[in-house]
């Protein structure tokens, strides 16, 4: 472990789940990375927004539904899931079509707060520009 250094890590997700392994293996990095106490966020851009749709049901394709894992991220202090608003709109989706992902805010008596933050393309550009390490899968 590297003590003392805190960098801004962003995981940039641009692919739908299941058709390729990127979404699942990206999530595996996020979970392992959580142990390193870095400033972590996830971005969902383009087809990446499909990773967060509510009601994923994979029984028919014989693959494991890993979408519940996003809801466990709060327990690992990963609470910033940026979803690009324009990407949702271009795909005929709205925030209501996504899973509810929440975390408990320690600073506010463990009040439940949404982890998914809808941001505009311009806002996301600003957030990306602040990052130290961008991981793309």
């Amino acid at each position: 472990m590297s003590e003392g250094v805190i960098k801004k890590f962003m995981y940039v997700n641009r692919k739908p789940p299941y058709g390729t392994v990127y979404a699942l293996e990206s999530l595996e990095v996020v979970l392992i990375g959580a142990a390193f106490d870095q400033d972590v966020s996830l971005a969902f851009i383009g087809d990446g927004v499909y990773q967060l749709t509510a009601g994923q049901s994979t029984g028919g394709i014989g693959m494991k539904n890993f979408s519940p894992t996003y809801n466990a991220l709060g327990d690992y202090d990963i609470t910033k899931l940026y979803v690009e608003k324009e990407s949702l709109e271009e795909r005929g989706l709205a925030i209501d079509d996504l899973m509810e992902v929440v975390y408990e805010d320690e600073d506010e008596d463990y009040a439940e707060k949404p982890s998914i933050r809808l941001v505009s393309r311009a806002e996301l550009a600003d957030i990306m520009a602040e990052q130290d390490v961008l991981l793309n899968f």
Binding site: M1, K7, E28, I32, G33, F36, L135, N136
Partner: peptide, 20 residues
């Protein structure tokens, strides 16, 4: 080795470049 080695590379390196 484990995925932690990737995170460590991100922390220790001045730049991380992804090829995919």
């Amino acid at each position: 080795s484990g995925l932690g080695q990737l995170i460590e590379a991100g922390i220790q390196s001045d730049r991380l470049v992804v090829f995919g």
